[in-house]
Structure formats: C-alpha cells, structure tokens
Design a protein around this nucleic acid. Structure first.
Length: 289
DNA sequence: ATCCAGGATCTCC
DNA sequence: GGAGATCATGGA
C-alpha cells in the first residue's frame, strides 16, 4: 500500500483486496450512496467522504493525510493482510474459494459502535434498502448537518430526546422501543461502550444482549463490525441458507450448530468467512425459494 | 393478496 | 427449555 496527498485528496496505489463497490454493497454498512461506477459517497465518523476507484488507484476526498491516517486507514482496515486471510480460507474449501473469487475486494469496515448498535437493531426482520432509509430518516431528524441534504448519524446525546412516536415516524416500526432501550442503557452505562475493548467476546455479547431487541445475531454484527471480534459468525436468513445449502445439506433448526461448525472450520477468521458467504449468497440467491 | 426481510420476544406447553 | 405466533413496514 502506498498513498500521497494532493489538493486535499488522498490517492492510494499499490494495494490489494480492495473494491469499494463490494466493500459497501456487501451488507455490512448502510450510510453510502452510489454516485457513479466505483464512485461512492459515505457518511461516517461525522464526515462525508468520496471514494472513487479506477484502474489501480483509489481516491479519497475531501481528505488530508492526517484524517486518512487517523480515521480512514483503520475504518477501511487497510493494515490487515487480506491476501493471507483469503488464502487461508480458500484452502480446502471450494465454497469459500468460489465466494472469495466472486468478491475478493471485500474488507470488514471498523465502524462506530453506537451507530452500529442502533443500525443493526433496525436491521432485524427488515430489508437492506429499508434499513438504509430508516437510518437516513433518523440521521436527518437528529444528526448534525454536514452538507446540503447530508446528515451525520446522531450521537448518543442527540438521541436521548427521541420519543417513541418520533422514532415511529422515522419508520422504525416495532423497533422504536428497542432503540429507546438501547439509548437508555448506553447512557446509564449498563452497556458501557467505552469498556468494550476490555471485555472478552462472550462478556461483550452478554452485555449487549441485555438490551431489548438485541439477540445473538444483532450482538454478533455489532461485535464483528465495530469491535473487531473476527471469530463471531453472524447468522441471518442468508447465512443460514448458504450454510444449509453448502455445508449441511439439510435444514438446520439450531443456530448453535452453525456457529459450532463455523468455529471449527474457520476459528478466528469466521467473521471474514461470514461476510464473503453472505454477499455471495445474497447476490446469487443461494437457497432462496 | 400473501409472503418475506442481515430477528427478537412473548406465550404456552 | 424449545417450538410457534407476533411484531411494523413496504416491495415483490
């Protein structure tokens, strides 16, 4: 990886395993807009960032070297060796090999914990385009204005005032009460986000699941996408289907059975495997009736 | 119209 | 402790 700053723009070259379309469209994050082919605008960490990929370079703008190094290198997980991960996962596993060949440019973003928590509460029993809309509604209503028609995801303090009625107007549906409970428990530190790095993955999971509306899957997403616990294996309908289809050849009732296999097969890389499989399954419609 | 979505909870046995 | 119904909302 190599990068230079030029007119408030970072130009990245000499990289591998990076495809901005795959990274954003693979279902791990929700606050992005497609401007053009391989040109996206994202909203994260109270900032708007363009990412434009062409040939063998990626441009990030507006962005100076300081922000790139302090925020975006970590956010895009640019210091992780994905070639090694992909090689390891592809070994003796034709299914993952295929999924990785299909979208080898995925990287697991390192997102903000609070945003991730609220976003994945909204995600339950919902479709991705709708999830994006609801998060957009909430951001417009409570978040900082960054540009014309672009609002940051609200902070904890900004969401403290949110009422059940207002949240329902944002189309959260039955999840409104869950969001209120999450905000309350983060505020009173029943769920202490600042302490997350000190907790074991199991402790972290139990802690998050004290929130109403946070079960195993939502907790796993928060843990994986914002706390770098790469051993978890969030299992939604798509992951369940792709696992049943390729690895079990039967209908699985207990999700723990899937988690057990994922742990045995992929260990600390299970989170990566999950993302390749999820994206592949969704794009190809694997197991869908 | 009926089914379903990056599920979790409540009910009832 | 484990199945089954229920929960808003909108697109197919």
């Amino acid at each position: 990886m190599n990068y230079i700053e030029e007119n408030n723009k970072i130009i990245l070259s000499d990289f591998d395993s990076f495809d901005i379309e795959e990274i954003l469209e693979c279902g791990q994050c929700f606050r992005f807009n497609k401007i053009d082919e391989k040109h996206y605008k994202i909203i994260a960490f109270n900032k708007v960032l363009n990412i434009k990929q062409e040939n063998n370079k990626v441009e990030f703008y507006p962005c100076n070297k300081k922000d790139f190094e302090n925020i975006w290198i970590n956010y895009f997980d640019l210091n992780t060796d994905y070639m090694k991960i992909k090689e390891e996962l592809s070994k003796n596993d034709d299914v993952l090999k295929e999924a990785i060949e299909y979208a080898g440019g995925i990287r697991i973003l390192k997102q903000d914990t609070f945003e991730c928590l609220i976003s994945f509460i909204i995600s339950q029993n919902n479709r991705i385009p709708m999830i994006k809309k609801v998060i957009e509604n909430i951001s417009c209503k409570y978040g900082n204005k960054l540009e014309e028609n672009i609002y940051a995801f609200p902070t904890l303090e900004q969401l403290l005032n949110a009422t059940n009625e207002e949240l329902k107007e944002c189309k959260t549906g039955f999840r409104a009460k869950y969001i209120i409970d999450a905000v309350e428990k983060v505020k009173n530190k029943t769920v202490n986000i600042d302490e997350f790095p000190k907790l074991s993955t199991e402790e972290l999971k139990e802690n998050l699941m004290q929130i109403k509306g946070v079960g195993i899957k939502v907790a796993d997403c928060v843990i994986l996408f914002s706390n770098s616990r790469m051993e978890v294996f969030p299992t939604d309908v798509w992951v369940k289907r792709v696992m049943e289809y390729f690895y079990f050849d039967k209908y699985i009732i207990n999700i723990k059975e899937i988690h057990k296999l994922a742990n045995e097969k992929w260990g600390n890389y299970a989170g990566y495997a999950q993302q390749y499989l999820f994206h592949y399954a969704r794009q190809k419609g694997i197991g869908k009736k």
